[in-house]
């Protein structure tokens, strides 16, 4: 075929010119890119390290009152003390597990509920219409505004705590899922239809996968919001959880323990977001 032939000659010419051209001395693109990424990583690490160093120096030198900002070494010491002796008579592990159980129960159930409602609302315009006003009213209200109401309704125990977290996360997952379903390009749906797919197959093979990136975005936002609400919920009542440590430590001006609580929540928040991101990249791999 003519086309093939001309392509081949073009290739040969390119090879010849490449052979004749003077050797390029610099790095190739791949190593350049690697170098840049390494550099960016270093900058990203340098900043927090710098902050930590400044923190430690200023507090060690007594430039900042220990009562406002404890030294890092002080926090670390306090952490090990709590880890070995427990806090308020309860082992640290129990506090951590209590918090994580609350968050992940609420997050898990909330995601399922939000997903289901979001899919239905995205797909069926009558269901969407039925829920529209309610969600639009609920959307701008910070979930924490409901916390005392939840306690009034469901008691001060575990249920209110989990439910308020669940509500906050479910709403976010629902709105994102609905958005994802609606953002599915019409052409893809029509393409499936002209290939013989009926409603259920279109939903399973086209609309749901197309919404997955949105669903995962929603889940990540929901998870971080859930951690925030967790602390607030544990501040209110109870004697167990990382939020309780924060609350209890602040009433006794135990700033070091307060920081231990804050940093532990930050740690678990970051780790679970990282894991969720890994899962998301696995599932939504086609995003390139």
């Amino acid at each position: 075929m003519q086309l093939k032939a001309s392509q081949q000659t073009a290739q040969q010419i390119a090879q010849q010119t490449a052979a004749n051209a003077p050797k390029f001395k610099g790095q190739d693109l791949k190593t350049q890119e690697l170098r840049e990424r390494g550099l960016l990583f270093c900058v990203g690490i340098a900043m927090p390290v710098l902050i930590l160093i400044l923190w430690e120096i200023t507090t060690q030198q007594g430039w900042i009152d220990e009562l406002f900002l404890p030294s890092i070494s002080g926090i670390v010491t306090e952490f090990f003390a709590i880890a070995s002796k427990g806090y308020a008579g309860t082992p640290l592990m129990s506090h951590v597990l209590a918090s994580l159980r609350r968050v992940f129960t609420a997050f898990g159930v909330g995601t399922l509920v939000g997903l289901l409602l979001g899919l239905l609302m995205g797909y069926y315009k009558y269901i969407r219409a039925a829920f529209y006003v309610v969600t639009e009213i609920l959307r701008p209200i910070p979930p924490l505004a409901f916390i005392t109401l939840f306690i009034l309704w469901f008691g001060i125990g575990e249920i209110s705590k989990v439910l308020i977290i669940l509500y906050a996360g479910a709403l976010i997952v629902m709105l994102n899922t609905m958005e994802g379903v609606r953002a599915c390009p019409k052409q893809k749906i029509l393409a499936a239809r002209t290939l013989g797919a009926k409603d259920l197959a279109i939903f399973a093979y086209v609309i749901f996968p197309a919404a997955l990136p949105y669903i995962f975005t929603g889940m990540r936002v929901a998870l971080s919001v859930d951690f925030g609400i967790l602390v607030a919920a544990e501040l209110l009542a109870g004697d167990l959880g990382m939020g309780y440590i924060i609350q209890d430590a602040s009433t006794f001006f135990n700033v070091e323990a307060l920081f231990v609580g804050i940093l532990m929540i930050a740690f678990f928040g970051v780790v679970s977001d990282f894991l969720l991101r890994l899962i998301s990249a696995r599932v939504v791999h086609w995003q390139g």
Binding site: P185, Q187, K188, L190, A191, Y205, P209, A210, W286, Q287
Partner: peptide
């Protein structure tokens, strides 16, 4: 279709 109607997944 003219545009991209492939299933990306």
């Amino acid at each position: 279709f003219q545009g991209n109607a492939l299933f990306d997944w």
